[in-house]
Computed example of a mutant assay.
Amino acid sequence: MNIGSYNELRIVSKTEAGLNLTDGDKLVLLPYSHVPKDAEIGDNLNVFVFVQKDGRLTATTQKAYASVGDFAFLKVVADGEEGAFMDLGIDKDIYVPTKEQLRPMRMGEKHVVFLFLDEGNDRLLASSKLYDFVENETFDFEEGDEVNLLISEETDLGYNAIINNKYIGLLFFNEVFTNVKVGDRRKGWIKNIRVDEKIDLTLQPSGYSHVISSKDMILAELKKHGGIIPLGDKSHPEDIYERFQISKSVFKKTIGALYKERIIKLSDDEIVLIAGED
């Protein structure tokens, strides 16, 4: 049975407190308050399983925000000298011992944490010391690959982000042209895997394939706005991103390609569609 995660279990009997479910080996109680109305003995249910403070296995049909092995952005609902509790989306809050807090947690705050099981009693715990749980070698991606990001922390250089729920990388401030905050889930790309095995990230695709798609987008915008767009080589990266959601680097490669094809005329602050291209 996967404690701290979802399990497909069979209903085998009823008790005064709820239904007994089994994986063929262990029994777990599903309280009546979480039992679907049409559930019958012999049915299978997909439930989240956790251990109560007294050691009892308990199941719920509530949807947890995360499972063991996940990084998640959770809210602190209680704090004390020994630890804090965070809302997991079910009746059972998740405990974060003080020793697992990168910085002291206070009620009402939200933090990115990693969920794991206590080796001694299988109790579900969380930690904000993320570097203790990310992998830092044998990457299963290459430079240029699209990845899923969870923004985990703002630093002096940019934003740390969890990559594919497994690794950690850095999104530099000069690679960000939109509002980003801790807890955001974003699509990103691997910009660089450094020799020290640290990972640089970007929110923009790279490579010529992206230039090709950007050409179509810019041409469509030119035709839509009378053949003129007030953006050029000297335009601010933020203005370019606001209009096209691409970096200035990709923008310059794209308009450069259009210029070489004699489709547009360029200036520092304007691109113009050449007559006959509309």
Rank of each mutant, 00 (worst) to 15 (best):
R186I: 12
N121R: 03
A66R: 08
S235P: 08
A66G: 11
D278Q: 06
L9M: 10
D140L: 10
Q101P: 07
G144V: 02
Y95Q: 08
K92A: 12
V180C: 01
I168S: 13
G188C: 00
V272G: 01
K37M: 04
L258N: 05
I255H: 12
E270Q: 14
S67P: 03
F71S: 02
L45N: 03
F139W: 11
V68R: 09
Y208H: 15
G158L: 01
F50W: 13
K224G: 06
H210M: 02
E119R: 14
G226H: 07
D278E: 15
F244S: 06
A161D: 03
D43Q: 00
K265G: 10
G183V: 01
G69H: 06
K75A: 10
V272N: 12
L102Y: 14
Y167W: 13
D23R: 07
F71V: 02
E153Q: 15
V113Y: 02
P104G: 07
L88E: 04
R243T: 11
A66S: 14
Q101G: 03
V134A: 04
A126L: 10
A39S: 14
K53G: 08
I274T: 09
V211P: 04
I271K: 10
L149R: 02
F116R: 11
D278K: 14
G55H: 03
F114Q: 04
Y241A: 09
A78G: 02
N121Y: 07
R10K: 15
V211E: 02
D23T: 05
Y241Q: 01
D93Q: 09
K252E: 13
S267D: 13
E119L: 09
L102Q: 14
V250L: 15
E100Q: 15
A126P: 07
P97G: 05
T61G: 08
K198S: 15
V12H: 08
V250I: 14
D269Q: 06
I168W: 02
E109G: 14
G169Y: 04
L30W: 05
H236P: 00
K53A: 14
G108S: 04
T58C: 10
I162P: 10
G120M: 11
L157I: 11
N44R: 14
S213A: 11
E270N: 11
D93T: 10
V49F: 08
L30S: 05
D233W: 10
R243I: 06
S213H: 08
E40V: 13
K191D: 11
K53E: 14
V47Q: 06
